[in-house]
Design a protein around this nucleic acid. Structure first.
Length: 644
RNA sequence: GCCAGCGUAGCUCAAUUGGCAGAGCAAUUGAUUUGUAAUCAAUAGGUUGCCAGUUCGAUUCUGGCCGCUGGCUCCA
């Protein structure tokens, strides 16, 4: 007999070779019915697999994340079966479950059209209705090869060649057979015919390799119920409604221009106003936080970029040089070498350190045309960059300081949830990193210590460090629970040496300073795009480009309305006045669609009482208020960074 | 960069199987002076992304380029 450990700590004895389904049955018939897959010693398994030795087993039932992933994996097989029926020549690539859905890659001569997706969906419903048992076959490599040859699945044969001889499994449903690790449902009928949807087709390189053929990838989504599917589709609609590319146009914030070049943003007056607010807040916090602010040029001589190593390692991301007086100059893709110039402008003493220099530095990077995406991926952008130069024994304090500083800054913009990643060296490849082991160890320890001191949960990413140092990345979660990478805090064991940076220590000798790069918002363009999506364009009062629209009911109220707006402007509140010939209703609608937080209606009553009737963007009517009370309230909302 | 799709008025979208390009909103002008999400009317607005080619004729067909979208890829 073998022993199965269960999550509740209990143990179960079963005969060797029992299937997981039988194990579930031994626990209870209900579980055997509800279970979809099982985690056996850390690996997700099909219920038809056998257990032959002692193991720890956790069963997952319908509704669990793991079961959803099995559902999606099974759905993608059904899709592949449908595609093979409709397009027998299609070659099967890979077809995994992904977050919220699945895809399958097919090698076909003609890309799929949206109409064909509908046909494929139809065929999938037939396959579901046929309720084919899904058979799990354990085969030898030779057998698998034979089967795949019979089915002429060239791509699968290529995958098979890379597999170990052990544990090759295939899944068969009806006439369809696929090389697959599983797990799967036991029957195609278990997928709900009205709870999946094919979403899009896109090209994808075979095995993600540009030099290999491009396959056609069909994306789809699948859920436990029609209701879940509907909820998911609604979420997709919400995401679309928040799309910053739409909103920056509607709200007249930022534009792009074909005739002026891709990936280059133009900030309109209202977007510019918001950017100034963001930058002012940023500068204030930086001065308070012990930073100094510097300004550096946009171009620098080739020699600088040779010394920094950018021309060796980052040339593809840089624009071609321009020749000035016989010298090549490059537009900067980063600010670091420039800050180092300032550092090297005089001898530095240990008494000067730490030096914290921040710059809203505009950089240009060549991004491949296909990667450009609204404000989130551009070719010219302003980094909220800073470099900290310090002694080795200051490193720990500095990291903690940056961490606190970043979270505080991001919270100021209304982000409360964070996901933190610590990227460290790949222990198996010690050769590919700059800097000494001791420095790496100390740097990593200081990063870990800072995270632990603040009791911040983080994910450790082995081998994800850049070659010049370990780093902490902070991702923010937005209103739709999507994560966006903003902050990066990186050690640099490369540039101080390349530029031969030194400081004079207490001992009178020269020492090499530690250098930390950090960008908190990342790029202002990108962060602005994230803000727009997070708030769906309805910004908190302190950020709103127009905070209040004064709405005179008729022309005879215009003068009073103007006085209201002027009084507010004089008090640093951003008020505008709508003197168009529209009716009040239309003026309200326009202000509403511009997502202006406060609408101040003024008519005879207000004019005589010296008040304003306040309507919020939310639709709430606050009634009449004195102008002083309103301004005090708005000032408070600005101070509190309140939404409304 | 690659695969696919798309590009018509400031915006959102019609239409042309190759034959004078249309609507709503916005704009302008006039009338209206209105109490919490669209007052009425008139006017103007286009080398149909750009450049070639085929054709009697191209917005429509072909090629190239630019840009956008969905992915792939990349991300010091």
């Amino acid at each position: 007999m073998i022993h199965i450990s269960l999550p509740d700590g209990s143990k179960l004895e079963v005969a060797p070779g029992a299937s997981l389904l039988e194990v579930a049955g031994a626990i209870g018939p209900g579980l055997a019915k509800a279970a979809v897959c099982a985690l056996v010693d850390g690996t997700l398994r099909d219920l038809r697999e056998q257990v032959n030795k002692d193991a720890t087993v956790t069963f997952f039932t319908r509704g669990s994340q793991e079961a959803l992933s099995v559902l999606r994996h099974t759905t993608t097989h059904i899709m592949a079966q449908a595609v093979k029926r409709l397009f027998p020549q299609a070659q099967l690539g890979i077809g995994p479950a992904i977050e919220d859905g699945f895809y399958y890659d097919f090698g076909v001569d003609q890309p799929f059209t949206p109409e064909q997706l509908a046909l494929i969906e139809e065929e999938m419903r037939k396959i579901i209705a046929s309720a084919y048992p899904i058979e799990r076959l354990e085969v030898s490599k030779a057998e698998a090869e034979k089967i795949l040859r019979e089915h002429n699945e060239q791509l699968k044969l290529e995958l098979l060649a890379d597999l170990d001889d052990e544990a090759i499994t295939m899944f068969k449903q009806g006439e369809f057979i696929d090389l697959c690790r599983g797990p799967h449902f036991a029957n195609t009928g278990e997928v709900k015919k009205d709870a999946f949807k094919l979403l899009s087709v896109a090209g994808a390189y075979w095995r993600g390799d540009e030099s290999r053929p491009m396959l056609q990838r069909i994306y789809g989504t699948a859920w436990e119920s029609k209701k879940d599917l509907a909820a998911h589709l609604e979420k997709l609609e919400q995401i679309e409604a928040r799309d910053h590319r739409k909103l920056i146009k509607q709200l007249d914030l930022v534009s792009f221009h074909e005739e002026a070049g891709a990936g280059l943003a133009y900030w309109h007056p209202k977007g510019g106003r918001m950017r100034v607010i963001i930058e002012d807040y940023w500068r204030k916090l930086h001065y308070q936080g012990g930073y100094d602010i510097v300004f550096t040029p946009h171009i620098g001589r080739a020699q600088l970029w040779e010394t920094s190593g950018h021309l060796d390692f980052y040339r593809d991301g840089m624009y071609a040089p321009m020749n000035i007086d016989g010298q090549d100059y490059y537009i900067k893709p980063m600010n670091c070498p420039f800050h180092i110039m300032i550092y090297k402008s005089r001898t530095r003493s240990y008494r000067d350190l730490p030096l914290r220099w921040a710059e809203l530095g505009t950089v240009y990077r060549y991004e491949r045309s296909g990667t450009l995406h609204g404000l989130l991926r551009v070719r010219g952008f302003t980094q909220d960059d800073a470099h900290i130069f310090c002694t080795p024994d200051q490193v720990e304090d500095e990291i903690l300081r940056v961490l606190d500083f970043s979270l505080n800054l991001l919270r100021g913009f209304g982000f409360e949830e964070f996901k933190i990643e610590l990227s460290v060296r790949d222990p198996n490849k010690p050769g590919k990193y700059a800097g000494e082991d001791a420095m790496w160890a100390q740097a990593e320890a200081s990063l870990v210590k800072a995270l632990d001191t603040r009791e911040l949960p983080y994910e450790r990413m082995e081998g994800e460090a850049v070659f010049y140092g370990p780093k902490i990345d902070i991702k923010i979660k937005d209103a739709l629970n999507r994560t966006w990478q903003c902050t990066t805090i990186q050690f640099d064991f490369n540039l101080p040496g390349r530029f031969d940076m030194t400081y004079i220590g207490e001992d009178g000798a020269e020492h090499r300073p530690y250098m930390i790069h950090r960008a908190l918002l990342g790029s202002l363009e990108r962060f602005f795009g994230i803000l727009v999506e997070h708030y769906a364009g309805a910004f908190p009062v302190w950020l709103a480009p127009v905070q209040a629209m004064v709405i005179p009911i008729s022309d005879r109220h215009n003068d009073y309305a103007r006085r209201v707006a002027d009084t507010m402007k004089a008090a640093d509140l951003r008020a505008e006045i709508d003197t168009s010939s529209s009716r009040m209703n239309a003026k309200i609608r326009n202000a509403q669609m511009q997502k202006i937080p406060y609408m101040l209606v003024v008519g005879d009553k207000e004019m005589n009482a010296g008040s304003v009737a306040v309507r919020l963007r939310s639709g709430e009517d606050l009634g009449a208020m004195s102008l002083d009370d309103l301004m005090a309230m708005m000032k408070r909302k600005v101070e509190e960074k309140a939404l409304l």
